[in-house]
Simulated scan of single mutants.
Amino acid sequence: MKFKTQLIHGKLIKRYKRFLADVELDDGTVVVVHCTNSGTMKSCLESGAEVYLTPVNDPKRKTKFTWEMIRINGDWIGINTGNPNVLANEAIKNNEIPGLTGYSNVKREVKYGDSRFDVFAENEHEKCFIEVKNVTLKEGKYALFPDAVTTRGQKHLKTLMQVKADGMRAVMLYIVQRTDVEVFAPAKEIDPDYAAALKDAVENGVEVIVMQAKIKPEEIRFTNLLPVDI
């Protein structure tokens, strides 16, 4: 996924009210930016760290920038939660994700039951519902999800189990937007209910695929699959 506009460089001052952050641009101007990430962003927040922003030319928006990434310990971390959905959709169409290839029809935002899934893919042999989650939390060598309690995430897992029970393919696709981790696992200490629901989902046929992504100011691209420790 290539960024459509040139990103703007700055340094993080602080994040607040979940969806806002103050950033000092290279010319010294301080701007308020939109943060799409509603989680705690634990392990990817550091005052004074380099950031990149997308300029937004929308008169209806109060903030004129969207926060895309932050540099922690020399590694760019993607914090825009909208990008993994775009990345996943493109990659599935282009057969770039191992295990999710060969689909002739790929669509975004498709409803099933009481949930709306990020990607739906099908061919003449099967139908597949895919839920995409952005992963930024790091603990040692582990990439963990979630970084805050998510009842919505549990709901998606339950509906994916129903998808599987109804004879279709059900996939949880976690996209790790940092390269300084080696294994994916549920964040049991943060949300034990989600961790239990994920284990139950896997035991009932829901597949888990974890892709690691390399973040650059020019583009985001997949690098490799990560092993999973449920």
Rank of each mutant, 00 (worst) to 15 (best):
K93P: 12
V208C: 12
Y103A: 14
F65V: 04
F120Y: 14
M69L: 09
E46F: 06
M1P: 01
D75I: 11
V183F: 03
S43R: 01
R116T: 10
K214W: 05
M211S: 11
K216Q: 06
I77C: 08
I190Q: 06
A201Q: 10
I79C: 03
S38T: 15
E131R: 04
I72G: 07
M41S: 05
H34V: 05
R15V: 11
C44A: 07
A121M: 13
Y194V: 08
I13C: 09
P217W: 01
V110N: 00
A148G: 10
G48P: 13
A148N: 15
L144Q: 03
C128K: 07
G28M: 08
H125Y: 12
A91L: 13
L144V: 04
I215V: 15
T40M: 06
G39P: 10
K17N: 15
Q6S: 12
I215F: 02
N73D: 15
A21E: 11
M161N: 06
P84H: 10
P84C: 14
E90M: 12
E189R: 09
L198N: 10
N83I: 05
V30T: 15
Y174P: 00
G167F: 11
A121W: 07
N105E: 15
V135D: 13
T136I: 11
T29C: 02
R116G: 04
G82V: 03
N37G: 01
K107Y: 06
S115H: 05
K107A: 08
L25W: 00
H156D: 05
L12M: 12
A213K: 01
V31S: 13
L225P: 01
I97Q: 00
V119K: 02
H9Y: 10
W76N: 02
K42S: 07
F222P: 00
A88E: 07
L198T: 10
K111E: 14
V119I: 14
T150V: 06
D26C: 04
C128I: 09
V56Q: 12
I215P: 01
R108C: 03
V181T: 15
K155M: 07
L45E: 04
F3N: 02
N80G: 04
L53W: 08
S43K: 02
K199C: 13
N85Y: 01
V110F: 02
G74K: 13
T36F: 01
I8A: 06
G82M: 10
Y52T: 09
E46T: 06
R108S: 10
V56Y: 11
T29E: 05
E90Y: 02
P98Y: 05
T179Y: 05
Y194H: 14
T66F: 00
T150Y: 03
D147S: 11
V163T: 05
R18G: 08
I72L: 09
A201M: 08
V106E: 06
W76I: 01
A91D: 11
R18N: 10
T5I: 03
V135L: 09
L225E: 02
V119T: 11
K199Y: 13
T159Y: 07
G140R: 09
S38A: 15
H34A: 07
P217K: 08
I8F: 06
E50L: 14
S115N: 11
K42G: 01
D58L: 10
L100W: 14
D75T: 10
P84F: 01
V228H: 02
